[in-house]
Write a protein that binds this DNA or RNA. Structure first.
Lengths: 111, 111
DNA sequence: GTAGGAGGCGTTATGTTATATCATTGATAT
DNA sequence: ATATCAATGATATAACATAACGCCTCCTAC
């Protein structure tokens, strides 16, 4: 969901302004309960309640379905290792866009 | 640079409105001459004139310096392979945030 | 050559995402 | 009780992006 979609939802249950929503999202992200999809400027509730490790995401470009991909230590290390010597890596953003099974089927049908 | 930073620059050399800039950026991106940094909502000129292959980026969180990281076929395949069976992967977004050497030194000095 | 239409470009307007800033409330120590 | 500071609430605006329209050019058919 976008931050403003969230805002619309919570308005019904009380007051809410953009900064309130963003503050809540930031807190939840610190706790690993919400993740941000950089390539979509959107947010998603963690499917596991809370994640500690780093995650990648697979995102359907048609229906926006998102699948979390936990990154093992080896994968994390490998990804961090891609950074040039000049930049000490700290954080990984990995998002894989594609088409999910359902949308691919729908596409075939319409074609 | 952000799209609006570009806009400010080109205003001096004539007319420019946001859609003009975004259209130009989109064309240049198709040609591989400009890349978009999803995690920053910003754009960068390709350091190589033009890239055909997929790229990752390393970005200094302090000074916004960006280093392009060409992804070899093996790395691309490995990254695409992280996608779950449910989603057929098409595109990779990989951005590594960190601190560059210069900013790390500056930090040490001030500490 | 000129009427009609497709596509590109400039422009206006607006939509979407995010944060700076100030006010208010509430807890804490004295 | 009151000064102080932190957390929350609210206003306003900044930053990023695109929808939609009109004009102009260029191509084509006649």
């Amino acid at each position: 969901m976008s931050a403003y979609a969230i805002l619309d939802r919570v308005r019904k249950s009380g007051i809410a302004h953009p900064p309130t929503v963003y503050r809540a999202l930031n807190d939840l992200m610190k706790k690993g309960m919400v993740h941000r999809l950089e390539s979509r400027s959107a947010f998603i509730a963690c499917g596991h309640g809370a994640c500690d490790g780093r995650l990648a995401f697979a995102i359907c470009r048609a229906c926006d379905k998102v699948v979390e991909i936990p990154l093992g230590k080896k994968e994390q290390a490998r990804l961090l290792g891609l950074a040039p010597a000049e930049i000490t890596p700290e954080q990984i953003t990995l998002e894989i866009a594609g088409v999910c099974e359902a949308c691919r089927s729908a596409q075939d049908t319409s074609a």
